[in-house]
Design a protein around this nucleic acid. Structure first.
Lengths: 240, 240
DNA sequence: TAGTGGTCTAGACCACTAC
DNA sequence: TAGTGGTCTAGACCACTAT
């Protein structure tokens, strides 16, 4: 099977599975052999195979489904996510020819956290709208974003939320301003279990976390945006 | 032990370990209880405990060491890595009051790959220097960078490599130019096994991968830089 | 020598899927 | 009902560390 000398059998098995995927012998969307069959092939027992498959799963190659098998993950070509002062999620996706989807998962109107008040330069009695949005490309969940907007900037926002499509389109058409990105921080993180469920990604596949402060053109902060993006579906692109 | 109902015992155990770490009951640098002791505590066997500890390891909380135990990872405060047209690794680190270290791991002079030639706008017969550098903050490995420079831009570079400290300092002092960042792509990835060894991070803890094209001031590309940064040690910061 | 984690065996029963 | 992955048991031996 393999001429190399491996330090352990489960590493040999997982490297074998990964190489089969890389060489397209196990194709995206298809199943890899069952644990029973792999145990037969490598003349070992299920525990060793399960340890191997778990590594392959953790590295993002397959997704096991109870009762069915372990399926090779699709590897979508990452979308170049252009990060500039005027970045807009929907435009970034549509530029690649993919259908953009946007679903408002949850919203609330409440006092800001201390951190949010600081970032948005808000006084004591302000309220903020908090919008949790799931963004998708060609029906595949791609990012979870949280937008925090001072209530006084977007009065009666709740009336606009029924037929929500693009946040920025709505801000332009209804409130007649376009937020401009002031600065962003970019980090690689693990999703929480809930975030992983929404993004349909396992908890140990990283996400790109972009936090941005958006300003009125030439003016005060107007939005604190947190985007958690599947790292296999987007690569950030920044021009200087 | 727990009043919550968990779907499985190994998840209960791993959540327990993680919460103990979060609440500082298991402190960074110290050991968590041995697998034997945990099995005793939870009235189960080692396999279940090992599965739990593996999850805790994969999520970056502990590092097991054979013969010694599983140690809680330090959680260094991420360095704000300021990404601008004039970013310099050493300055970013030193700004935080940490000692910056830089070690040239490997270098070569050879033809560029097709991709590199394209990015650097190189003709057919050019050669490039390729420098692999390990960067550290307070003696902790922090990033692996690969710099690709056209040989004609840095003649006799090998003579400069004996007492290597800061690439940009050398370019300024010896070759009298300062590369300016033209654009960057930022992605979250897993390190290769070799990269993980250099960065002292397990293969399933993500890294931030920044690829940048650097130009002569107002001119042609002069460096293709790839930085792979430990995601727990840096957060990128971008101003617009 | 005792204690730790790393690997492996050989089963058991359960939950879910497909037929 | 048969096949799949998910969970769990109860051991074995090895490699490495500390004493």
């Amino acid at each position: 099977m393999a001429l190399e000398s491996f330090s352990s059998l489960h590493l040999e098995v997982s490297d074998y599975i990964i190489s089969q995927i890389k060489h397209d012998h196990y194709k995206p969307g298809q199943k890899i052999p069952s644990e029973h069959a792999l145990a037969e092939t490598f003349q070992t027992n299920r525990s060793v195979i399960r340890q191997a498959v778990m590594r392959v799963t953790n590295l993002g190659w397959v997704t096991p489904v109870q009762g069915k098998g372990a399926f090779v993950n699709e590897r979508p070509k990452p979308i170049p996510f252009h990060l500039s002062s005027r970045t807009c999620f929907s435009k970034n996706v549509e530029k690649t020819g993919k259908r953009f989807g946007s679903k408002l998962m949850k919203w609330s109107k409440e006092p800001p956290t201390e951190y949010e008040a600081d970032r948005l330069q808000l006084g004591g009695k302000s309220l903020v709208y908090r919008l949790h949005i799931l963004r998708s490309a060609d029906e595949h969940p791609m990012a979870l974003t949280t937008s925090v907007l001072p209530a006084e900037e977007v009065p009666a926002l709740e009336k606009q939320l029924d037929h929500f499509y693009s946040l920025y389109q709505m801000l332009e058409e209804t409130y007649h301003f376009t937020p401009l990105r002031s600065f962003s921080t970019v980090a690689a993180e693990f999703p929480s279990i809930e975030e992983g469920q929404h993004l349909e990604t396992p908890e140990n596949v990283p996400i790109i976390h972009i936090e941005s402060v958006m300003n009125h053109p030439g003016g005060a902060p107007v939005e604190l945006a947190n985007a958690k993006i599947r790292s296999d579906m987007a690569t950030c692109f920044i021009e200087f």
